[in-house]
Design a protein around this nucleic acid. Structure first.
Lengths: 201, 201
DNA sequence: ATGGTTCGGGAGTGATCGCTCCCGAATCGG
DNA sequence: CCGATTCGGGAGCGATCACTCCCGAACCAT
């Protein structure tokens, strides 16, 4: 039809995600976004409708990248579940691959900032939470099948505790808490899954 | 000296706390505050210097009321520590005495919204966190002394886990999660403290 | 009473908010 | 090559942001 875009829409969403992640929704202005994405206001609005829509796109982008990566790291098909869980949680509080620390989790930050006021946002945060819980449930189930966890283990309760602990860890990482204390937390949480049952040879 | 104030400064801070708590820092405008506190801008600024200072006052007010009440409810001098812990955590996620739900914890909301960017805010959130951890430590120590908890219990680890769990619970309450699931979480967290040692008559 | 001081209230500051409009340039299909 | 369409870019919209100034009224010490 006509003139094509001179910027990569996907890259722009990624940059917007970065900004919203660090500063939150209200503290990020459209001008900030424009500067970061190297987009004039008109291009930004033509492409993303408005700030709120762009924010939803950013949330979706985050879930499609960070959350999905977390989900993949929780795969326990070839390692002991305790080890997988421990390293997964450690990665969650260490992940600043790009040196950026104190960002916490975009979903957690968003859930606390926007609470239950924005239904479209809430749908997305709840979906992300549900995926995490589901993945935890799968790992624990696998651990029980393999005999790494006691058959007495209340998987429902363990999922809730691990999930809640992860939210807390994300808050603490955002608040700048040191890795040492967070590691202590993680180790104790793993221990809460109970001792490994005796192995039948 | 001169004409006295026609409003109660303490009440004004309490109202401001309510507003900041529900909406967060950036989403609360000075006009909103003025309307809620029934204060004209000039009175507000004469009394509280500026928005940021008023926010710090609100944080301090919250710690002096809500946090202190939580601290008091964690007193285990005349009841079993598990029971005290359980009811304390339940209260934390139920406390909307005034019907207001989904507010979460003002300190947690603030820590995630402002992260590590504001040192004055961070001092206060960290102080609040430290008080909670200290209170948890005291309860667990008492439980061990009384023989309600195993002498093998790693109190340091248990404190970290309980504290982190509480942060997670507060996030979930803010996100609108149902009491049922949160109760499951709490019960499993209590169970993570281990079985009660056999009572020596 | 009176002078000194702070009060409540309202108008108004410049800056920034989210967002729109219009332009000439660029790129397409025909 | 040309009409149609969308592009990037910049100026600028009304509204709201945090905040200030000024005024007459109210209060206290003397």
């Amino acid at each position: 039809m006509a003139r094509p875009r001179q910027f990569d829409e996907h890259d722009a969403v990624a940059s917007a995600t970065e900004l919203f992640w660090r500063r939150g929704y209200h503290a990020t202005s459209v001008r900030d976004l424009g500067d970061e994405l190297k987009l004039t206001p008109s291009s930004l609005y033509r492409t993303f409708t408005d700030k709120h829509t762009l924010f939803l796109r950013a949330l979706d982008h985050y879930r499609a990248t960070e959350s999905t990566q977390a989900y993949r790291r929780l795969d326990a098909s070839d390692r002991p579940v305790r080890e997988v869980l421990r390293e997964w949680m450690l990665w969650l509080v260490t992940c600043p691959a790009d040196g950026e620390s104190g960002r916490g989790c975009f979903v957690v930050n968003t859930a606390t900032e926007l609470g239950t006021t924005d239904t479209q946002v809430q749908e997305r945060t709840e979906a992300a939470f549900a995926v995490t819980r589901q993945a935890l449930r799968a790992v624990l189930a696998e651990g029980r099948e393999r005999g790494e966890l006691s058959t007495d283990l209340d998987i429902g309760g363990a999922v809730e505790l691990l999930f809640t602990t992860v939210l807390g860890l994300r808050v603490r990482e955002r608040a700048g808490h040191g890795l040492e204390r967070l590691t202590t937390t993680i180790d104790f949480a793993i221990r809460a899954l109970g001792a490994a049952p005796a192995q039948p040879a």
